[in-house]
Amino acid sequence: MTSPAEPPGNGVRSYRDLRDDVIRIRENVPGKLEISNGVIVHDPAAPNGLHELTAARISRRLEKVMPEGLLAHTGTAPDVEDVLQGVLRHPDVTVIAEADMAADGPLDPRALIAAIEVVSRSNPGNDWVGKIRDYPLLGVPVYAIFDLRTGSGAVLSDIRPTPSGPRYAMRKDFVYGEDVTIAEWTIPTGGLPRYS
């Protein structure tokens, strides 16, 4: 669900105002708050056990095959932010070098190796539409989606310019049980949970 922000008298709110609102209300609002396309995006359901278990398993499987010095981070902080694009996102799994993670404050999206999302049951369009638009705009080279509703997903890569902005030119779909390659590393998808 995308919740439009309350505009001031001229109908336009600045990104900084939206970001201040997200920071101010984040601890008191259940679910996930992000900013995209001039609005606060609210996924009202707090991540459930299956969602978190999927993110943890993906993270562990990646860290087993990635070289030392890289992380497949899950957790509540930090956000990925591009002030000029007006986008604040928080991937379920962030693949990044440890050195780039050591920065104070939000992560520079251009430092990400990959962003991985586990599709929310309450707001699947956020992962399948909004983030497919935002992550190439931010310069994130690889975006992987795991959908617990269908037991399938996709890995998007190869950012190309288009008249409507940067878009991923390559998409590789997969079903649970197949191996999937995210950036340079291949992991199994067997044993990942599904929503009932």
Rank of each mutant, 00 (worst) to 15 (best):
V39Y: 15
G190R: 11
V155A: 07
A56H: 02
S196F: 13
Y135C: 05
N126A: 12
V65H: 03
R57D: 03
A111H: 03
P4F: 13
D92Q: 04
E178N: 13
L33V: 09
A103Q: 05
V95E: 00
R61S: 01
A5W: 11
W185V: 01
A55K: 09
M1R: 12
P8R: 14
D147G: 06
I159A: 08
S14I: 04
G151M: 03
P141T: 02
R121H: 14
H51S: 10
E52S: 12
N123D: 11
D179S: 12
I116Y: 01
R19E: 07
T94W: 00
P67Y: 08
V93D: 02
R24K: 13
L156C: 11
P44T: 12
T76Y: 05
D100L: 01
L18T: 04
G130Y: 13
A154F: 00
K172C: 03
S152F: 05
T74D: 06
A45D: 04
L53S: 02
A154Y: 03
G165S: 11
I58C: 00
S3W: 15
G31N: 13
I116M: 07
S120H: 05
R171D: 06
L88G: 03
T189Y: 02
I132R: 12
G165K: 08
Y176A: 15
G105P: 03
V129R: 14
N123Y: 08
F174I: 10
E6W: 14
R171L: 07
R61M: 08
V65N: 05
D158A: 06
R19Y: 13
T189W: 07
A103G: 08
T2V: 15
V65W: 04
L156A: 12
I58D: 00
T189H: 11
I25F: 14
D17L: 15
I132S: 15
V22E: 06
L50F: 07
R160D: 14
H90G: 12
L88Q: 07
A111W: 01
V129W: 09
